[in-house]
Amino acid sequence: MVSKLLEVTDLETHFISDDATVKAVDNVSFYINNAETLGIVGESGCGKSVTSLSIMRLLKNTPGKIVGGEITFLDQNLLNLSEKEMRAVRGNQIAMIFQEPMTSLNPVYKIGRQIEEGIRLHLKLDKAAAKARALEMLELVGIPRAKDILNEYPYQLSGGMRQRVMIAMAMSCVPKLLIADEPTTALDVTIQAQILDLMRDLRKNSDTSILMITHDLGVVAEMCDRVIVMYAGQIVEEASVLELFENPQHPYTKGLINSIPKLGNYTERLDSIPGNVPTPENMPTGCRFAPRCSFVMKQCLSEAPMLKGVQENHSCRCWLSEVEKND
């Protein structure tokens, strides 16, 4: 039986400043099963990173605050843990890699030290054993000259190599969940493919679940089992990857799928979605996507749709799919 590793229920994360409250994550619920890869896709600013930082409870140094919901991981609500208990989870049971490989490593310390310190912290290994483990991890992520790299500084490595180091670091304590926040966005295309290959291999050879955050449906198609589409802080569609690509329901999802460049189609313009994500100040009262939607109806402008199941394991937040269902 598949069991849920992580379940996020009604998560609300707000950014509170003097003049406004931005609901960066608005009533978001999802789950990840053991050894499953869940994708979160959406345009810039839709709340993907804030969702992942909320799970890690790493918003303390930002104006962001989790104001509601539950994050159940291994049967405990992470939001109820003390800061000390939470630190034992971070980097140990839940690890994270970031979008910015160039700046995510400390420039003044050697690679080896930076990998070893996490290993020593969580696995309580001694110096020599931690070093051996770091070396093993670097070899696992396909770094050539792994032994030398341990004694090198981040500036001596390329972006792709640094991201490999970040992955080695994240996987070194055998996390149950790996959160990858756009791990390939900052890399060029060939390196992107290498890193995705690497992550797929790692997934095959371990039970680690992955939360794959991206704005690239191509990455989702290659990597994920299930996918969540986010728009302006809300989930607008959720389905298995196959189902989503075959039977997209939400006009936003359809737009995203149409904007993937297809082979042999280079001469035509990309079918991108017109308009921009609404700013928090002028969030529409009805459906948040309505101003950009080509299927917009009267109802969409006044009433916000709910996330409703359209099929088993497929839900969508759109009046259109409810209309269809009622027909």
Binding site: K84, R87, V89, N92, F98, S104, N106
Partner: peptide, 23 residues
């Protein structure tokens, strides 16, 4: 303390004080 590598340290599970000292 606003740098990305400090965030990495936090994500690794280090306490704020040891981050200041170590990183």
């Amino acid at each position: 303390l606003k740098e990305d590598y400090i965030r990495t340290g936090r994500a690794k599970g280090f306490a704020e004080n040891s981050l200041v000292k170590r990183h």
